[in-house]
Every structure is written in structure tokens, then in C-alpha cells.
Write a protein that binds this DNA or RNA. Structure first.
Length: 215
DNA sequence: ACGGTAGTTCTCTAAATGTT
DNA sequence: AACATTTAGAGAACTACCGT
């Protein structure tokens, strides 16, 4: 499919195809909504976390929007996606402020100029946009990261773990997940601990730290 | 504001079971 | 046998709520 053909296809049509498992439609939507995700996610900053971590939250929001979009409600997909992306990023920032997640603490908005003291008066977000400004290479790398991570989850997690993760990300409690999946609360607990271990291992591997960490 | 309490979540560990 | 997956217990950490 060439660039021109791609632009002529409606979001709603692509969502329908993506829901049916069409990878190309999914890729096109990712490409089309990349900027929106970037705008939404880069408005926030999680200290101690990569810039990509927040961006990834935004992409999770987009993924949820594709999965949950209901055609019969006649709401344009764009509006629904924007809502899902923003909600996902805000939830992540809120979660990061919990003392329990100390490593991700101290989130602050990039928009507020008074939180930093730059002589040129630019806010953090404006500064970031200047620094990042959407190079094609960066777009490509980010998209690859997202697909890599999604593949990693599908390949590495068991069915139970994958289901638990999906509901956990949606904000369900252990008890709700356990009831919904007809497993014990402890099974949900254990599944989440395994998921965290696997994701941590992957994270360390990606950064070449696994050997030191597990030594 | 502070301390107590209950419920939830996290961490570590050991053991049982299934698969290769 | 080795490894992966799952289950379970115990205790710590955290959050929200309530009474003082």
C-alpha cells in the first residue's frame, strides 16, 4: 500500500481490520497516531524512568482504544483514542506518585514553567519538543520498540499471565481479576510476580545489565 | 496532625506438578 | 534429570479510613 492510498482509508475501517488481527492496519494506525501519542505522553515526566516509558503508556492507551472501540456509539475514533491515550498516561503518572513505587516517584508536568528556571522561559515540554523533533529515525526506532515489546509479551507470558496482565493494566484489583478468571487470589498474585520478574529480566537484558544483576 | 486498624499489594521462599 | 509453571504461606510495605 502506498502513502496516498494509506491516507484515504478511514480510522474506523482500519480499527475494524486491526480488531480482526490485520497487522498492517494496526501498523498504519500506530503510524497515524504516533504524533498524538507523543504529544499526550510527553506532557508528563516520570523521574527515574525513560522518556520511552511514558510514551509506551500512551501507546498502551492507543492499543486499548483499538481493542475497545465500539462502532455502534457513532463517536469518531480520533476522539475516543485521544481520551484513552490521555487517560492511560494520567493513570500511569498517578500510579507513579504512590510511595510504593518510589523508583517512579516525583512525576512533574512538562508544561509548568515555574517548576524549572530556564533563562529562555521555555517549559520542559517545549524544550523537549525542540530536542526531539520527530526525526524519521526516532519514529522508526520507537515503533520497533513497541512491536518488540508486544511480541515479547505474547511469546514470554503464559495465557494466565497474559490475561492477568491485561486486567491489571486496566486497573482491576487482584480480587476482581481472580473472580473474573475463576482462579484464586493467590494465583493472580503469583502471576503478577512472575510477569514482573520476566519484564525486569528483559529490561536488564536490553541494557546489557543482566549478567551483573544475576551474578 | 497523629496513631491505630483493616484491606490490599509486594517480596521471598518452598514445594508440587507438568513438560521436554 | 532439568527446567518451566503454578500454588501456597508468611511477613513486610503501603494506602485509605476512622477516631481522637
Amino acid at each position: 500500500m502506498n502513502e496516498q492510498e494509506m491516507h484515504m482509508i478511514s480510522d474506523e475501517y482500519l480499527v475494524a481490520k486491526a480488531k480482526q488481527g490485520d497487522q498492517e492496519a494496526f501498523d498504519i494506525l500506530c503510524k497515524r497516531y504516533h504524533l498524538l501519542v507523543k504529544k499526550s505522553s510527553y506532557s508528563y515526566f516520570l523521574q527515574g524512568a525513560d522518556r520511552d516509558d511514558v510514551w509506551q503508556e500512551g501507546m498502551i492507551g492507543l492499543y486499548k482504544a483499538i481493542c475497545d472501540y465500539q462502532f455502534e456509539k457513532n463517536v469518531p475514533f480520533f476522539h475516543f483514542a485521544r481520551l484513552c491515550i490521555t487517560r492511560q498516561v494520567v493513570s500511569a503518572v498517578k500510579a507513579s506518585t504512590r510511595q510504593k513505587h518510589a523508583i517512579l516517584n516525583s512525576s512533574l508536568s512538562f508544561e509548568r514553567k515555574e517548576q524549572v528556571d530556564f533563562s529562555d522561559g521555555l517549559s520542559l515540554v517545549e524544550r523537549f519538543h525542540l530536542e526531539l523533533d520527530d526525526s524519521p529515525e526516532e519514529r522508526f526506532v520507537n515503533r520497533e520498540n513497541w512491536h518488540d515489546f508486544k511480541s515479547f509479551l505474547l511469546e514470554t507470558l503464559t495465557c494466565l499471565e497474559y490475561d492477568v496482565l491485561r486486567y491489571y493494566i486496566d486497573g482491576w484489583t487482584y480480587e476482581e481479576i481472580a473472580n473474573h478468571l475463576s482462579v484464586s487470589l493467590k494465583s493472580v498474585d503469583n502471576a503478577l510476580q512472575r510477569i514482573k520478574r520476566k519484564v525486569t529480566k528483559r529490561w536488564l537484558n536490553d541494557r546489557g545489565l543482566a549478567r551483573q544483576y544475576y551474578a
